[in-house]
């Protein structure tokens, strides 16, 4: 994605918070506690009723599940590492991504963290596959 387009998108994420949370010089303890509280722990948070939808898995979503499970099966990570890595994404990504997009993003991150792949290998592979799929369509 072009830099300008990307920046325009980022600018619109949670705009009402931008003045408050833009690497402030200081924040109160209470805000720090809130910011670092473990993200996936949403039970009891206020929310409105939302329709319960049955979307069903797309192919990439099912493949994400399978790839993540195979990584666990063969010892590259365990499921709790995946769940922790999802928290590590931070609130914008955690709540911004679809469920399985969170999974595959942190699978890639964990493989890099563990030194099993490098970021340049990952980037090149992504570009190669994108070119392959665009030629297909």
């Amino acid at each position: 994605m072009q830099y300008a387009t990307l920046m325009e998108r980022v600018r619109h994420l949670a705009p009402e918070e931008r003045n408050v949370l833009d690497s402030p010089y200081q924040i109160p303890n209470e805000l720090y506690a809130a910011l670092r509280s473990v993200l996936h722990d949403v039970g009891g948070q206020p929310d409105a009723p939302t329709p319960y939808l049955e979307k069903g898995e797309e192919d990439w979503e099912m493949n994400t599940y399978l790839t993540c499970e195979c990584l666990g099966w063969r010892g590259a990570w365990n499921s709790e590492m995946r769940r922790r890595a999802e928290n590590d994404l931070g609130a914008t990504m955690y709540f911004g991504l679809p469920y399985y997009a969170r999974w595959i993003t942190v699978a890639a991150k964990t493989l890099v963290d563990k030194g099993l792949i490098t970021t340049d290998e990952l980037g090149q592979k992504i570009d190669e596959i994108r070119a392959r799929l665009e030629a297909r369509d």
């Binding site: 192919d59 990439w60 979503e61 493949n63 994400t64 790839t67 195979c70 990584l71 099966w73 063969r74 590259a76 679809p98 399985y100 997009a101 595959i104 993003t105 699978a107 890639a108 493989l111 099993l116 792949i117 290998e121 990952l122 592979k125 992504i126 596959i129 994108r130 799929l133 665009e134 369509d137």
Partner: peptide, 21 residues
């Protein structure tokens, strides 16, 4: 073309190439 589909394929192909699974 979904970037999620691309990322999944990238992770899977790298994992297979490197013998992770």
């Amino acid at each position: 073309v979904s970037e999620f589909e691309i990322l999944e394929l990238a992770v899977r192909e790298l994992a297979i190439e490197k013998g992770i699974f």
